[in-house]
Write a protein that binds this DNA or RNA. Structure first.
Lengths: 226, 226
DNA sequence: CCGGTTCGTTCAGGTAAGGTTCAGGTCTTC
DNA sequence: GAAGACCTGAACCTTACCTGAACGAACCGG
C-alpha cells in the first residue's frame, strides 16, 4: 500500500508519516499543492491524504484537477475544525472521505482501511478466449475488439461456452443450463444457435465433436494471453 | 437512489427522511436493529444510514452480520458526539463513512453523494456519457450543452443509468432502485419513462436489450472523452 | 375553494425482435 | 454407399417492448 501525504505542517507531517509507516504503508510526502499535484499525477498511489490548506495551490484545486484528468485514486481530505462548509465543496470536488483536525490517529487509520478496501472491491472478471472477450458485468462481448451484437440466448450460450472453454460441452448440458426443466429434448435449437454464433464469432472457434458436443477454443495462432 | 435509514429517534428520523426525499432519494425507514437487518438483507439499497444506538440489535452487530453475509452496500454510520472509539470499531466492522451527531444536513448529503458515487466506480462528481452530462449536486442534466427539462422521475432514471452506463440494467433493478418496497411489479411505467427519456436525450442513446433490460451508451461517433 | 397545470401511472393496440420448428442438405463413419 | 449426426435457410409465432392517449393525484395561484 503506497500513500501520498500532502500536508504542510512539519510536525504533523512527521508524526503522521511515522504512524502510517508503522501501520505498514509506504508514504511519500508533499509539502505543498504543486508537489502534491505532480506526485499524484506520476506515482500510482493506493490512497491520498490531502490537507486543504496547502501553500502554492490549495487542496480543493489540486483535487479538482486530478478528477478532471480522470484520476480515480481514493482521496481523504484534512481540514481545520469548524470549516464544515469546506467539507461540502471538498466532497463535491471528488473527495472520498473527510477528517477534521485534530483527530485521533486511530481514526485516520480506520478510515484509510475502509477507503482502500472499497477501492479494491472493483475486480471485475473478464472472460477471454483468444480474440473473443466477454464482460459479464456489462453483458457485452467482442471479437478482436469489434463489439458483437448478440441476442439474449446467443449471449447466454457464448457465456456458458466461455466459462468452460477448451472443454467439450454436450448438447444436454447446454440445454440444462440455458433452459428450465421442461424443454423439448429432441429439438435442434442448440444447433441452430451454434450456427448463428459461429457466423458471428468465426466458424473455427467452435469445434464440433461428433457424438459428444461442442468445444470453444482460441484459434490456432492465437496465443492464450489475457 | 434508494436508501435505508436505520434510526430510532422519531424526530430525527422524520426530519432526515424529509430532507433525503427532498434531495431525490427514495427512503425506507427502520426504527430498530432487527428491522434494519431484515430490510438490508432483502432490499437492494444504494446506501445505508445506520445509527449505532439502535434498540434490539445494535448497529455494529447489524453491520457485522451484513458484511459476513457478503453484503457490500456502502454504509454510513451515525453516532453521538465523543464516542470516537465507536468509530474505529464501526469502520472495522465494514462501515464506509461516519458522522457524529449533531451534524449539518448539508454534510450528510455531501457524504452520501460521495459514497454513492464511489460505490458506482465514479470518482468524478460530474457524470458524462457522450454528449450527455449530469451534475448530481445541481440536479441538472444537459445534452450537447443544451439544458434538459426533466421531471423528477426522469431525472432519477437518467441518474441511475449514467452511474451504470454501458451496463445492461434490468427493469426490475430499475424498479428496485427508484421505488420503495411496495410497487406494482408488473407495471409498465419504466417502459413509458424510457420512451419519454429517449425523446429528450435521443433515441439511440438508450439501447434496449430484449429480455435483459436497457443500456445507456454514448453514440457511435462520440468518443469516450471526459 | 376552484379551475389549471404538472406528472406519475394505467391501459390497449400495434410492431417487430428473436425463439422455435421444419424440411431439406451436407458431412462422417462404418 | 447407406445411416445417422449435424448444418442451415426460411417460415412461423409468441411475447417483450413501444406508444399515444386518458386518468387521477398533487400542487398552485387566484
Amino acid at each position: 500500500m503506497r500513500i501520498l501525504l500532502a500536508e504542510d505542517d512539519p510536525d504533523l507531517s512527521r508524526q503522521l508519516k511515522a504512524s502510517l509507516s508503522d501501520a505498514g504503508y509506504v508514504v511519500d510526502h508533499a509539502p505543498d499543492g504543486e508537489e502534491a499535484h505532480f506526485l499524484g499525477d506520476t506515482e500510482p498511489y493506493d490512497c491520498i491524504i490531502l490537507d486543504l490548506g496547502l501553500p502554492k495551490i490549495d487542496g480543493v484545486s489540486v483535487l479538482e484537477r486530478w478528477r478532471r484528468e480522470g484520476k480515480t485514486t481514493p482521496v481523504l481530505i484534512l481540514t481545520a475544525r469548524g470549516a464544515w462548509s469546506d467539507k461540502v465543496s471538498g466532497f463535491d470536488a471528488g473527495a472520498d472521505d473527510y477528517l477534521t483536525k485534530p483527530f485521533h490517529t486511530e481514526e485516520l487509520l480506520a478510515r484509510l482501511r475502509a477507503l482502500v478496501r472499497r477501492a479494491a472491491g472493483h475486480a471485475q472478471p473478464m472472460l477471454v478466449c483468444g480474440g473473443v472477450r466477454l464482460d459479464p458485468r456489462a453483458a457485452r462481448a467482442s471479437v478482436n475488439g469489434e463489439p458483437l451484437r448478440l441476442t439474449s440466448l446467443e449471449y447466454r450460450l457464448l457465456h456458458y461456452l466461455m466459462m468452460h472453454q477448451n472443454r467439450v460441452i454436450s448438447r444436454t448440458e447446454l440445454v440444462e443450463h440455458l433452459y428450465d426443466q421442461d424443454f423439448d429434448r429432441d429439438s435442434n435449437t442448440i444447433e441452430v444457435f451454434m450456427g448463428r454464433l459461429r457466423k458471428k464469432i468465426g466458424n473455427e472457434r467452435i469445434e464440433t465433436v461428433r457424438g459428444l458436443g461442442y468445444r470453444l477454443k482460441p484459434l490456432h495462432d492465437e496465443v492464450s494471453d489475457l
